[in-house]
Structures are given as C-alpha cells and as structure tokens.
Amino acid sequence: MKELFPIKQVMGFAFSLILTVIALLVYFTDMSYTVGMTVLLITAFVQAGLQVVVFMHAGETKDKGSIYLNIYYALLIALITIFGTLLVLVWDM
C-alpha cells in the first residue's frame, strides 16, 4: 500500500499551494517593495525547483546528470541575461 500512495507528490502539491499563498500575500498585504520582491523571488525559485524535481521527475532516471547540467546551464544564461540587462539599462545608465 505504501508504494502505491504517491506521498511525495501529494506533499509536493500541498507545498506548492503554500508557496502560492505566500506569494499572493505580497499582493493582498501591505509590504514594502524590498520585502515584497524578496518574498516573490524566493517563492518563485523554490516553486520552479519543486516543479522540476517533484512533478517533472528530474532526478529519477539515469539521465539525472545531463538533466541537471541542462538546468544549471539555463540558469546561468538566464542570470547573465538578467544581470547584464540590469547593468546596461539601470545600474550603468
């Protein structure tokens, strides 16, 4: 019975709902810009990680290595793009 019940997925689902609620709080309560952004950024990244690991089964096959390599590469490029853009359009304007 234990193997049949997808406990990991159910927990994951609950957790992702909680993350969504926390993110929504930014909209419904009166936080400062910095606090709001921090909350959003953290919940967004945790949420994305959760989806990839729990629901898209990133770590469950023997391709694990290449899947994570791919994700880290994407992350690197995304971060470079974001920080480069900030540098060009905001910080060094």
Partner: peptide, 22 residues
Amino acid sequence: SFFVWAHHFFTMGQGPLANSIF
C-alpha cells in the same frame, strides 16, 4: 555568444563600465 549582446548598442547611452565589460 550569450555574453556579448550589448555590443550592438554601445551608443545607446549606458556608461563606460557596461561598455567595457561587453
């Protein structure tokens, strides 16, 4: 190739720091 894009608009108004990096 993902680290160089701003060389297409060096003259857009960003400062020397950003331009030098790119």
